Computed example of a mutant assay.
Amino acid sequence: MKSLEPCMSPRPARCMLAFTSAAAAALIITGCAGLKDQYAASADAQQRMAAEAAADTKAGASVDTQATYLKLVDQMQKEDLWFASLAHIDALEQRWGVSPESTRTRAEALRQTGQAAPAEAAYKRLLGTPLASAGYRGLGLLAGTRGNYAEAVQLLMQAQRRTPTDALLLSDLGYAQLRAGQIEEARLPLMQALQLRPDSTQAQANLALYLEVTNQRDQATALMDANRMSEATRMAVREAALQMRAPGGLAAPVAATAASIRGEPIVTPLALKPSRWAGVGGMRTAIQTNPPASNAEATFSPNSIPRGTP
């Protein structure tokens, strides 16, 4: 049996080689373990980053989607920010393309900003879509603005056949029938509108107008009392009814204190108002009509044709 000889000076090369090999092996083992730990840490970090990115994407998608953007545009239009909404509709369509929903909002904004010709073209593009009712309604409102109430009735009836429970559409139809001389026909849609939307000031005023025109003044007064209509609104309703009862009054424009009763768009000074939608598309100001100084000064015209949805 051979004895193990220590590494001594007579064989320095062999000893050096042995130590070098052992050290290298140790370094390799240590290095492999270190790299393994680094790879594991890197993989964990990547997984965390991927999870965070997925969460951010999901959170962003809940806000930054076509449907959500359309809701924002609808809300702006409810607040009468019609000019600003047109800018956001441009941004929406640049990102997601043109859709029936974006066309509807564009048509409404064009009509409300006095651009009748492009509004009419936009409404007509809706006729072959699931939003055909909105197209017919918009065309009916434009016809009413021109004073062509017989045409308005036909178009609004087309819309009503497609969406029979739309209270504001029924109110528009009833008013157009009143102005077209179809007094008895107006009763049904006006009653339906008020029962479907008893809180609608437009439906209340239009039914009160019908009652005044048909000489049911006690019922008209009771309706206005029950809904606490302002004196200005009552005067507008009664003046419109008086002129509609006059010879030729149904066909002629109704001149009254409120410009909207004449079938004309209300033109008031424009003011720059800070927009609530600064974070959407970078729009920081919006042109909007000046609001009334108080609720008591605000008049609700019985004419729902020029302005459409209240």
Rank of each mutant, 00 (worst) to 15 (best):
T299H: 00
E212K: 11
L272F: 11
D166G: 10
A258D: 15
D218P: 05
N148T: 07
E185Q: 15
R238P: 02
L156F: 03
Q112G: 01
T65F: 01
A208L: 08
I287S: 10
A33D: 03
S9E: 12
A152K: 01
S21A: 15
L142M: 07
P306H: 02
L209H: 06
L194N: 07
V254N: 00
V63P: 01
L270W: 14
I305T: 04
M16K: 10
L270C: 11
A271W: 07
A119T: 05
G147N: 00
A24E: 11
M16L: 14
M8D: 12
P100Q: 03
L188I: 04
T257A: 14
L72D: 03
G174M: 00
L81R: 15
R217H: 14
R245Y: 07
N295G: 15
M8T: 15
W277E: 10
Q112D: 00
G181H: 04
R162Y: 00
T129V: 02
L209I: 06
R111K: 06
C15H: 06
A150M: 02
R307W: 08
R104K: 09
P189V: 00
A256M: 06
A61K: 11
L4W: 12
R161T: 11
Q47C: 04
G114V: 09
M229L: 15
R245F: 05
E93N: 12
N295T: 14
I28A: 14
P10G: 06
A51R: 12
V213I: 14
S62D: 12
R245Q: 14
F83W: 13
T129Q: 03
A13R: 14
R262P: 01
K2H: 11
S99P: 10
R146I: 02
K36P: 01
A203I: 03
C7W: 08
A286Q: 13
M16T: 08
A24Y: 10
L194R: 13
A143W: 04
A208R: 09
C15W: 07
A193S: 11
L173F: 09
A298L: 11
T103S: 08
P12S: 08
S260P: 00
R228H: 14
Y210W: 15
A18M: 10
A117C: 00
G281Y: 08
T214L: 04
G279E: 07
Y39R: 15
S294T: 14
G144Q: 06
A55N: 10
A232K: 06
A117V: 09
P130C: 05
V73A: 05
A208Y: 07
A54G: 10
R179A: 06
R106F: 00
A87P: 00
M229K: 08
L81D: 12
R106D: 00
P310Q: 13
M191G: 03
M283W: 13
A25R: 13
T165P: 04
Q192S: 15
L156K: 01
T257C: 02
D80Y: 13
E151I: 05
S62F: 08
P306W: 02
